[in-house]
Simulated assay, not measured.
Amino acid sequence: MRIMLACQAGMSTSIIVAKMEDEAKRQGKNYKIWAIDQSLIEKEIGNFDVLLLGPQIQHTLRKVKKIVDGNAPVAVIRPMDYGRGNGAAVLEFAEELIKEGE
């Protein structure tokens, strides 16, 4: 699974990415997880299976869904999980979105 996160500058999300990677490894899952600046989303179309937005850019959700155009599920990370750096919960959320989209 390829999980891409997007935020204001790709910086704050890097903490979540590291925690998600740790949890995926702990579960024996070989996922590609990375973060980008929201301005680069369009260039990444086709490279991810799910796109999670940082809560600080949740106002862009409708616009981002139009850009992604159904190629992958798009959702906002729950603010509590984001704020607490709960990589396990964010990873589970991404997996749920993929299952719903199948």
Rank of each mutant, 00 (worst) to 15 (best):
A88L: 13
Q56I: 15
I16R: 03
G46D: 11
I33W: 07
L53K: 07
R78C: 00
N30M: 15
I33M: 14
L97D: 02
L51K: 09
M11Y: 07
L53M: 11
S12G: 11
Q56Y: 12
C7G: 11
I67Q: 05
A94K: 03
E23K: 06
I57R: 03
N30S: 15
R2M: 07
G85F: 06
I15N: 14
I45A: 02
N86D: 09
G101K: 09
L91I: 14
A75W: 08
K32I: 07
K32P: 01
G10Y: 09
L5Y: 05
P79Q: 05
R84Y: 07
V74C: 01
D69N: 14
V76M: 00
M1Y: 12
P79L: 04
M1S: 05
R78H: 01
G70M: 05
S14Y: 02
K19H: 14
T60C: 06
T60P: 05
R2K: 14
I16A: 08
L61N: 01
F48H: 03
L61H: 03
A88E: 15
A75P: 11
G85P: 08
N86A: 06
E102T: 06
S39E: 04
G101P: 00
I98K: 00
A24S: 08
P79W: 06
K66W: 14
Q56R: 11
L40C: 10
I16V: 10
F48Y: 10
I36L: 10
A18S: 15
G10E: 10
G54K: 04
L97Q: 01
L97G: 01
K43I: 00
G46A: 09
A94C: 13
P79M: 06
R62K: 14
R84K: 11
K32H: 03
R62Q: 10
D49T: 03
I16E: 03
I41V: 15
I57K: 05
R78Y: 00
L53C: 13
A35G: 08
I15Q: 13
N71F: 14
N71W: 15
R62G: 01
R84D: 02
I16L: 09
I3R: 04
N71K: 13
V64G: 05
V76R: 00
G70D: 12
A89N: 10
V76N: 00
A94N: 07
Q27N: 08
N30K: 15
I36D: 01
G87L: 12
V74S: 01
D49L: 03
N86T: 08
A88K: 15
E42V: 11
D49S: 03
T60Q: 12
I16N: 02
A89R: 06
G85M: 12
M80H: 03
K29H: 13
A75Y: 10
R62N: 09
T13S: 10
E44F: 04
D49N: 04
R78V: 00
G83P: 00
